[in-house]
Amino acid sequence: MNVTFTYSYSHNVVPPRCRLPRTVREHDGLITVAIRDIPAEQAPVAIISRNTSAPTHDPVEYRTFEGCLWTNCKMFACARDNKAEGGPNSTHRLPEPEISLLTDSVTLSHWDQGIYVGAYQGKAGIAEYLERWARDRIIIDGLLYLPVGEPMYVVMTFGLSNNHGGTSLHCTDHLNPNIKDSSYFSILEHEQASDYARSVAANRGDTIKYSDDPGIDFQVLIPEAIRWKNPRRGVPA
């Protein structure tokens, strides 16, 4: 699928008989980028997740392609985003064949398609941004897919211990620098994650406020697509 952008940009120009450059706004930016349309077999389903705390939400299929995971819906904490436009069961919207980014604003934006770039990047810089935007999208069977983080388990604690706050097992798709690596587990390590959560809860005295149910079930179809490993534990079994 080709998408043609017209866009504005800023650049510095030294006017005739002047020595100092001045910032000038131009509106002649034009570029056509290609979003790859690939057959489903090139991006097989690696993981299927089901939100057990929201049974009306459709399952999410994570496809693997070029070493990344991709989904056709907006995600939040490894689940369908309840705040997605059109509801949690909606899918990403395909872009229009022609998109105008002509503006006098300092930024060029198209929130529906996740575009946000400063006019100061210049003609070439904005063109490079839009080419990267296109590379981060693929189309499979008429649906738009975007790359997402790998789902993981994380054990989190809250409050001051002894049932003030508590201990619980959650799902996440990114590492929080405020949480130590040993608290993270791949989705192939659910049993280990539960054992660790129970151990942390016991050490804290969280006998009541404790949960090892992350609210999401994962079915792993391609184990090789699971790349997270804790260096202290080695490769997930």
Rank of each mutant, 00 (worst) to 15 (best):
V3R: 04
V3L: 06
F5N: 06
S10A: 09
H11N: 13
H11S: 12
V13I: 09
V14A: 07
V14G: 06
P15Q: 06
R17W: 11
L20N: 13
L20F: 12
P21I: 00
V24F: 10
R25E: 08
E26Q: 10
L30C: 09
A34T: 15
R36P: 08
D37V: 12
P39I: 10
A40D: 12
A40I: 13
E41Q: 14
P44K: 09
P44I: 08
A46R: 06
I47G: 02
I47Y: 02
S49H: 07
S49V: 10
T52Q: 10
P55I: 14
V60S: 03
E61G: 07
E61M: 11
L69N: 03
L69W: 05
W70D: 12
N72Q: 05
K74M: 11
F76Y: 15
C78D: 07
A79S: 12
R80F: 05
D81C: 14
N82V: 13
A84C: 06
A84D: 05
G86T: 03
G87E: 03
S90P: 11
R93F: 06
L94D: 08
L94A: 10
E96Q: 15
E96Y: 09
P97M: 04
D104K: 03
L108K: 04
H110G: 08
H110A: 15
I115P: 08
Y120D: 11
Q121K: 15
Y129S: 01
Y129H: 05
E131T: 14
R137Q: 12
R137I: 04
I138M: 04
I138P: 05
I139W: 03
I139H: 03
I139C: 05
D141Y: 07
L146G: 05
P147F: 10
V148G: 06
E150Q: 11
Y153I: 00
V155D: 01
V155L: 01
M156W: 05
T167P: 04
L169T: 01
L169Q: 00
H170T: 02
T172M: 11
D173K: 10
P177V: 08
P177G: 07
I179Q: 01
K180P: 05
S183G: 06
Y184C: 02
Y184H: 00
S186E: 00
I187C: 01
E189L: 01
H190C: 09
H190W: 07
E191H: 11
Q192C: 03
A193H: 02
S194N: 04
S194E: 12
Y196Q: 02
A197W: 07
S199T: 12
S199N: 14
V200T: 11
T207D: 11
Y210R: 14
D212V: 05
D212S: 11
F218S: 04
Q219T: 15
P223V: 02
E224A: 15
A225L: 07
A225Y: 02
I226W: 00
W228E: 00
V235T: 15
P236Y: 00
A237F: 04
